[in-house]
Each structure stands twice: as structure tokens, then as C-alpha cells.
Amino acid sequence: MRGSNTALGAAGLAVFLALGEAVPRLGLVKEAYFPPTSRIASALWDEVTTDGFWSALGDTLTGWAVGLAIAVCAGVVVGVTVSIVPYLRETTASTIEFLRPIPSVALIPLAVLLYGAELKSVLILVVYASFWQVLVQTLYGVQDVDPVAEETARSYGLGTWARVRHVLWPTALPYVMTGVRLAAAVALILAITAELIIGAPGLGQEIAVAQTSQAVPEMYALIVVTGVLGLLINVGARTVERRALAWHQSVRGEVAV
């Protein structure tokens, strides 16, 4: 089953790549502005053999990883705190609903004013965008705690910390992991966007330089790299999710009773 899925996935990708080769070759779009797959592939090869590419990749991944780590920690801590401290959820709900829809990109002027074209600016955008994903999932997860289990834990005399650890956390974890997976993708998008627009070092800036240099194939090659990065991050996030939730029925895949 899994084997055939992989085969289908590969076939789909092959068709996509072939289309990418054929469309410009047939003259449906101009080769100069949309180079065929083979041309992009050779530009990609040229890119990966330069040092600049790897340091840019490193910069992007640093921004992504640090930003995601901050967002996940903050999201979980704030989410749990807001949920278990009575009335705090109600007090903060409107504020959260107000702040959450603000697009991170709208904070670019603020980030530039505060930190200029540096990693810190990237982090502001990445953290802001991915924090809400984790926070909201954590809030929902905590809400999902079975009241009977909670009451049982209480009547057995478990303290607050023990209840968080043994009742709340296992219930919330599947939600949190979904939040982390979403946040991982969002963090990458924002890291690249920040570099592209602010000019902080990284893959986004390389794309911008290729664009101003009229280096069209190189630009597409770098865009492909960001796509591959997104794919790897998603696969990685799913793996982590499966590991962390190995005990959970959604992952065990056994028939629920």
C-alpha cells in the first residue's frame, strides 16, 4: 500500500516535471521568462556548488528553527497557562482574536524599524506567524480534556502539576502536534518572505538578487529549493508527530473500540 503510494507520488511529480519541460519548449510560454525543467535543474546544480548558497540555506534554516522553537515554547506555555488559570481564557479571548488575524507581513515596517535587515527582524515575523498556530491548537486541546478524567484525577488527590502532566497534556498533545506541524510550514514561509522583502541574509535574499540580476533560471532554481525545503519540513514534522503520538489511537490506526 505504502509502496504504491510512493510510486503514484513519483509518477505525479514526473508528469509535473515533464510538463515544466514541455510547456516552454513548445513555446506556450516564453523560455526566457519560464525556463524548462532541465534548464532550472542545471541552474540548481550551479547554485548548490557555491558557498553562498549553503550559507544562505543555513541562514534561512536558522531563522526558521529558532523562530519555530520560540513560537512553540511560547505557544504551549501561554496556551496551557491561559487555559488552567480561571477566567484568563475569557479575559484574553478578544485580545487573541484581535491579534491573531494580523498578517505577519504587515509587521515588516515595525520589524525593520526595530532591528533593520537582521535575523531579529526575521524572527519577529516568524514567531508572530507561527505562535498563533500553536497557541490556538493548544487552547482547543486543553478544552478537549475529558471532565470525568479531570474529576477523577482531582478526587484521587492529584495536584495541579500532576493533572497538567497526566490528564491535560496527553489530551492536548495531538492538537499541539498539529499546531507544530502547521507552524513549521508557516515559519518557513515567513522566513523566506522576510528575507525576500526585508533583505535579511538567506534564501529569500538570494532569490531577490537573482531577480534583480535578470538571472531567471537561477531564480526558479532557488524557488525550487524553498519548495523542497517545505516538503522536507513537512515530512519531518509528520515523523515527529507520529513518534510523539505513537500511543495515540489516531496514529496506532487500530479500530477504536
Binding site: V112, L113, G116, A117, I198, G199
Partner: peptide, 19 residues
């Protein structure tokens, strides 16, 4: 060198002391 996107971003960068 800090690469800015377009010259317009450079003037505020200089007046604010980032460059």
C-alpha cells in the same frame, strides 16, 4: 554590505543608524 530592496529603504536605514 547590507542589501536593501530598492533605494527607498536605504535612507530611513541610514537616518535611524542601522547603516
Amino acid at each position: 554590505m547590507t542589501l536593501a530592496q530598492g533605494g527607498a529603504a536605504i535612507v530611513p536605514g541610514v537616518t535611524s543608524g542601522q547603516f
